[in-house]
């Protein structure tokens, strides 16, 4: 597999340096703690919002740092949780009188690092709230988790919390809001190919030319099952059924629909997927009020996609609509 890479162990810092150089006015890179933060954070009048996870999921989460979303992202190495002392130092750097909110995807390594970082930071007098995201309906437990995994639905939790925090919401209210958004978000993904971590240099798992992995995790973890490659419509219908029946989403519901590329699928294919998903939801009497098509939470260069549905209400819709200024832009 051909990749842009120098020394694999510099992969993440080199990426972070690039992001910082591309956004000099708004972002600050702190190499000691592998951290990207808003240049104007922390603010005395706002809860600081921090997300930590492994790298390899860009634009999540280092590229959604900015006004109206994250105040800092604290990434680990590719597919590795950030070390606990980085969590602690990030939390200290972002300390605000209104508190610091940790948003964590439900993976064992991330949770342990953040549990400990939180305990250490609280011992130093910092107020911390935690929101755990676990929107993936594919599997109950996995090689990486106890319970469901946190995947692309994370975007909605961050967007809603970021908008509310910008308006001055208190820490406890933001935790409740995050839990509420997570509770109405459901995702399932599938892989057409494996991904190739830079340090490994070869595909993470073997998937035959005529095979696909339904319910794949964003680190290439096994999903529900491996099967013969099907048509795009058949794949979309299966993902949609798994996601829609889980909450369940019902006739008359207003929803946001996200078609998320896993890193190696062209935009053309993502819109083909979106078209089918949108039409199928409409046929079920479910109203697609907001849509998101593109790369939000990737798995390096994996070909494949995930579908996310979020049940909307008025408050959530307005938080998702609120403006944000993040480096992930095309203008």
């Amino acid at each position: 597999m051909k990749k842009f890479v120098n020394d694999p162990k510099d992969f993440v810092p080199e990426m972070l340096r690039g992001i910082a150089l591309a956004n000099p006015a708004t972002l600050r890179y702190v190499p000691e703690y592998n951290l990207i933060m808003r240049a104007d954070a922390p603010s005395e009048n706002k809860v600081s919002i921090v997300q930590g996870s492994g790298s390899g999921h860009e634009p999540a989460h280092v590229m959604i740092v900015g006004k109206g979303m994250l105040d800092a992202a604290c990434p680990g190495d590719v597919f590795s949780a950030p070390p606990m002392d980085y969590v602690l130092e990030t939390t200290k750097l972002l300390n605000s009188p209104k508190g610091v909110l940790h948003i964590i995807n439900n993976y064992t390594g991330d949770r342990m690092a953040f549990d400990m970082g939180r305990e250490m930071a609280e011992a130093e007098g910092i107020r911390i709230g935690t929101v755990i995201v676990d929107d993936d309906v594919a599997v109950k437990d996995s090689t990486w988790t106890v319970g469901r995994r946190g995947v692309a639905g994370n975007f909605f939790v961050i967007k809603a919390i970021g908008a509310a925090a910008e308006k001055g919401a208190e820490l406890d209210d933001l935790v409740a809001l995050g839990n509420r958004v997570n509770a109405v978000s459901r995702t399932m993904g599938m892989a057409l190919t494996s991904c190739t971590p830079p340090a490994k240099g070869s595909p993470l798992f073997d998937l035959g030319d005529d095979e696909m992995e339904m319910g794949v995790g964003i680190h290439g973890e096994p999903g529900r099952r491996r099967e013969k490659l099907a048509s795009a419509n058949e794949i979309v219908d299966e993902l949609l059924e798994a996601v829609a029946s889980d909450l369940p989403f019902k006739k008359g519901d207003d929803v946001a629909l996200m078609v998320n590329g896993l890193g190696g699928t062209p935009i053309s294919e993502l819109y083909l997927v979106y078209g089918r998903a949108h039409a199928q939801l409409t046929a079920r009497g479910i109203n697609v009020r907001r849509n998101y098509v593109g790369e939000y939470c990737t798995s390096l260069d994996m070909a494949g996609c995930s579908l996310t549905l979020v049940r909307l209400d008025e408050e959530l819709s307005s938080l998702l609509e609120a403006p944000a200024e993040i480096p992930n832009r095309i203008f």
Partner: peptide
């Protein structure tokens, strides 16, 4: 002891780091 906990947690790999670090914490 908190300083020791940070060193142990962040420099000891695998599950031993968090376990021994938690003990000091």
């Amino acid at each position: 002891l908190r300083k020791v906990a940070v060193i142990i947690t962040s420099r000891v790999g695998g599950t031993s780091g968090p376990l021994w670090g938690t003990a000091f914490m």
